[in-house]
């Protein structure tokens, strides 16, 4: 992420979370946090506990973030934020928490159609991580039609061009779902497992080979010793933790979508 991308990320993040932007230059931004945002990112629970128990006047923080220090013309005091900085990671985490569940309705503009109707879909974004002594991650985005059970891939990308609203429009007919969202979720869970099963797992075999080789080396050290010391078991355990392959499936976000 370049400084400019970080900057627009901050703009959108605070705007969408109703934090007032007090001043905005290309290379720094000053925001007034809301009470909720202060509690989320300022890490001062005792202040808020104190305030609430004494009925004091809340005074959420004002923050200045510098997104490109090299281009500052004046002497600005503030926190330097860049890709990799702890603050940005914290905001990424907050974004993840605040953007995990949606219910959206496609906007219908066609006035000639007598009774436009929208079909319910469940969309789920999965992150699959492969771990051994190395890591690899893959994103999968699926949508499942809650009327037909039809599953499509790259669902998130297909929503890019769609204009959504967050409330039902009056004169549009919303089909009720036949498949319950939770059942649909279970279907998608098995789809993802199936994909994982058919994926290329050479990585796991290779990690296993590295593991076996290191085990042989370890055995070599203790060859001929009958009562092996505690650190032998410790080494074996460490090798297991180092090389054992495991897969993590995580849902990062998802929701109900009513689409034409």
């Amino acid at each position: 992420m370049y400084p400019q991308q970080v900057h627009s990320y901050l703009q959108t993040f605070f705007r969408e979370n109703n934090c007032q932007i007090l001043s905005d230059n290309n290379h720094y931004i000053t925001v007034q946090l809301t009470i909720d945002m202060d509690k989320k990112i300022m890490n001062r629970p005792y202040y808020w506990k104190y305030l609430e128990s004494t009925n004091g006047v809340p005074c959420p923080a004002q923050l200045t973030f510098i997104t490109n220090q090299n281009k500052l013309e004046k002497d600005i005091k503030g926190e330097v934020v860049h890709f990799g900085s702890p603050r940005l990671n914290q905001l990424f985490q907050a974004t993840k928490e605040l953007g995990a569940f949606v219910q959206m309705y496609e906007k219908v503009v066609d006035k000639f159609e007598s009774r436009p109707f929208l079909t319910p879909w469940l969309g789920v974004n999965y992150k699959v991580s492969y771990y051994s002594d190395q890591t690899k991650e893959i994103l999968h985005s699926f949508g499942i039609n809650l009327m037909t059970g039809n599953v499509v891939e790259d669902f998130q990308e297909s929503l890019r061009e769609v204009d959504f609203g967050s409330v039902m429009s009056e004169n549009v007919f919303h089909l009720p779902y036949i498949i319950k969202p939770i059942r649909a979720l279970e279907r998608l869970d098995s789809v993802i497992e199936n994909i994982i099963q058919h994926d290329d797992h050479t990585w796991a075999e290779e990690a296993n080979r590295r593991w076996q080789r290191d085990l042989e080396v370890l055995e070599h050290f203790y060859v001929g010793i009958e009562n092996r010391p505690e650190c032998y078991e410790m080494e074996k355990k460490a090798l297991k933790e180092q090389y054992e392959s495991r897969i993590k499936i995580e849902i990062i976000s998802g929701g109900i979508f009513y689409l034409k």
Partner: peptide, 23 residues
């Protein structure tokens, strides 16, 4: 429910930070 922009931002962040290669 969450806000649609944050939903999209969150997906973009995940995509950006994805570790796509073992090496």
């Amino acid at each position: 429910w969450s806000n649609w922009s944050l939903y999209n931002m969150s997906y973009e962040v995940e995509k950006n930070n994805l570790i796509t290669e073992f090496r």
